[in-house]
Design a protein around this nucleic acid. Sequence first.
DNA 1: GCGGTTAGTGGGTAAAAGTGGGTAATTTAG
DNA 2: CTAAATTACCCACTTTTACCCACTAACCGC
Lengths: 153, 153
Amino acid sequence: MVERGKAASMFQGEFTNNMDEKGRVNIPAPFRDALQKSYNEGTLIVARDAQSPCLRAYPLREWNRLLAKLGAMPANDRVVLAFKRAVVSSALEYQPDKQGRILIPQTLRNHAGILKSTVFAGLNDTFEIWDALAWEKQLASSLALLQDQDLSF
Amino acid sequence: MVERGKAASMFQGEFTNNMDEKGRVNIPAPFRDALQKSYNEGTLIVARDAQSPCLRAYPLREWNRLLAKLGAMPANDRVVLAFKRAVVSSALEYQPDKQGRILIPQTLRNHAGILKSTVFAGLNDTFEIWDALAWEKQLASSLALLQDQDLSF
DNA sequence: GCGGTTAGTGGGTAAAAGTGGGTAATTTAG
DNA sequence: CTAAATTACCCACTTTTACCCACTAACCGC
């Protein structure tokens, strides 16, 4: 079993790719496969994450579920409005090119502080896109948080 | 390599294998057998352990149970998110083949501090993967902890 | 111990993933 | 409406990984 490990049915695994000078990054092949296999789509929504300095990528189906939930909430609630402004307004729809890359605009890059080395982290039904350095830091603090936890799973 | 036992029904025993320069390590044969016999699968998920500097390997069935539990919890809970970022994002799926090896990427190697000599420790329904030196230390402290304990089993 | 058999290790080579860059098409600005 | 800028698309190159083979070491029955 000399394989690197394909990401399973959904988004799993951590991959680092470089953004080139044009602002393009390669979506890791396992994630592209997962999109096809589990969702039968090629479409990807990328938007600001609401609570962390990273981007979040959704298969169309997951994105629509999120929108549906939002729609069911009072439209002028302060939090809902803030979420729409921060997240929904930033959402872009991608169809990765033949090389599997997407072009991330400057505004989104800024939010995640992405310079060049970019981490893709699978969280099962979505995946996150981080600047490599920022990812390392948050990973360390995630592990620290878990350390004191009485995990029931 | 340490002693080779008979294939136990589940994951049991401690085995030491060497990682080669390409980053490949052999999964001990008894564990591969156990996967087949007890789970009727060939699929193995390897991920960071949440609380110790080691990796944890799950049969697909066990991994899915974990994901199911996770899915039932509030997705934005801090601990749940941290767990997803630390563990789920690191999960890789491996399909056994003739040689029985897996390629462990650098990020996972780092988390477990694996250099070359690698210990596989069976914990019944999962098994752990340690750097040999780290394993010895944790073993000593596990035994020390048990020393003062009033064991009810 | 002795040979047969299975587990573990090392390495070469197709193939696939990732990267860089040029040109055509599209959009934006003047 | 035209020119500049941006984006999409395509091709070629580099690096990494998967797969295969062969070799060595350990185990098992005799």
